[in-house]
């Protein structure tokens, strides 16, 4: 039986094989990118890593899916 591709964060099966993450974490990544654009505009300049760090420090405000993707992006992504 062919093994399904799994989301590296929650280990759920990924239905759309074009994406890296499951449905929820793919959506969270889109939201995170939109958020980065807003932060960039607000501060004038801000690196992706600094943004992720700031987002991760905002416990209680950042949504749990966004937090998980930010954590994964911060520690494991090569982007």
């Amino acid at each position: 039986m062919k093994a399904n591709k799994q989301c590296p964060i929650c280990k759920k099966d990924i239905e759309n094989l074009q994406t890296q993450y499951c449905k929820n974490h793919s959506k969270a990544k889109r939201e995170l990118k939109k958020g980065y654009e807003a932060w960039l505009k607000a501060y004038g300049s801000l690196s992706w890593d600094d943004f992720l760090q700031k987002i991760l420090n905002l416990e209680g405000l950042t949504g749990v899916f966004v937090r998980e993707i930010a954590q994964h992006e911060f520690y494991f992504s090569n982007e």
């Binding site: 929820n24 939109k34 958020g35 807003a38 501060y43």
Partner: peptide, 10 residues
């Protein structure tokens, strides 16, 4: 909408 929330500064 809470789980996908990204706080924005102002």
């Amino acid at each position: 909408s809470i789980k996908f929330f990204v706080p924005i500064p102002y």
